[in-house]
């Protein structure tokens, strides 16, 4: 229903604008903090308008020693680590769940339902619950301080398997039958028909999983001891507690700003497909 009354328009816009402000204000403060020097950031009142140290802060954060007086990897390396972890997690999850959903929907094999329920049960076991045994396994496999250790334990995904199962179930049987008559085997059907039909869903899931991977905190904290493997999200927290000095807000906020950029970039790049993937039902 589309109403056209000035008062409603005014109220809805007001609510929307307030909402945007509430979300945008902290981001603005982060940005402002990344443009002042350390001294200014420790005086009150806090600045509300940008200063002129943005490039200096960037330079020091990205390539310099970062926080003065600590043994830290440069932030560009952390960004790289986070990117590698997020990409491995999201693509790994997508590949595994596409394959398992394909198996569950299109193949009859013994204990099919058994496997289905096994996958289902892993829903109840996120990393946080199984963190000690998982750590043990990863440590025994010698995967501490490696990209594999960062990503593999987070890859198994029941939610994504379910999502693809639902997507595959909406594909009409006749398409499969048509493909069989055309002579397409299972793999051809998967690559030529199912994958293109799930394109938007894959994109939507990629965005969600990338952000999920990017924001991982507990697991990387646990299995990386080598500073060269630190991810950016965990380092922000560490910076706050670093040394016995007052926090260097300008550097921390610059790091935070940098940490926000890749997810934002992914969302913007995938926006069109993402929205289609969440809303379209028509196959």
């Amino acid at each position: 229903m589309v109403e056209n009354r000035p008062l409603t328009t005014f109220v809805t816009h007001l609510v929307l604008i307030l909402g945007v402000l509430a979300i945008a204000f902290p981001v603005w403060i982060t940005f402002v903090a990344s443009t002042h020097n350390e001294l200014r950031m420790n005086q009150s009142p806090l600045p509300l308008w940008p200063g002129e140290y943005f490039l200096t802060n960037m330079q020091q954060t990205l390539f310099g020693s970062g926080l003065s007086g600590t043994e830290q990897a440069p932030v560009w390396l952390m960004l790289l680590n986070s990117l590698a972890m997020a990409l491995l997690i999201s693509s790994g999850k997508i590949v595994i769940s596409l394959l398992s959903a394909f198996a569950i929907v299109y193949f009859k094999f013994p204990f099919r339902m058994g496997f289905f329920w096994m996958i289902f049960i892993t829903l109840m076991l996120p990393v946080e619950v199984r963190i000690l045994p998982t750590f043990e396994v990863v440590a025994n496999l010698g995967m501490l301080n490696s990209y594999w250790g960062l990503s593999i334990p987070l890859i198994a995904s029941a939610t994504a398997t379910f999502m693809f199962r639902q997507v595959f179930l909406t594909v009409p049987d006749e398409l499969l039958e048509s493909a069989r008559i055309d002579g397409a085997g299972p793999l051809r059907f998967f690559f030529d028909i199912l994958l293109p039909l799930s394109r938007t869903n894959i994109a939507a899931l990629f965005v969600i999983l990338f952000i999920f991977g990017w924001n991982q905190y507990l697991w990387p904290l646990l299995i990386t001891t080598d500073t060269s493997m630190t991810t950016i999200v965990m380092s922000i927290k560490q910076m706050l507690e670093a040394a016995e000095q007052s926090p260097q807000w300008n550097i921390i906020m610059t790091t935070a700003l940098l940490a926000m950029i890749p997810p934002v970039f992914v969302v913007i790049a995938m926006q069109k497909l993402f929205v289609q993937g969440l809303t379209e039902t028509d196959k």
Binding site: L175, E177, A179, R180, I181, D182, G183, L197
Partner: peptide, 29 residues
């Protein structure tokens, strides 16, 4: 297998591959 029987089938809901053009649909087999 259906593909080895040298038959062609027309379905009630047409079962065209939605992501392929008409040309690709016809050429796929």
């Amino acid at each position: 297998e259906p593909s080895q029987r040298d038959i062609a089938m027309v379905f009630q809901n047409y079962a065209l591959y939605p992501h392929m053009t008409v040309r690709q649909n016809m050429a796929y087999g």
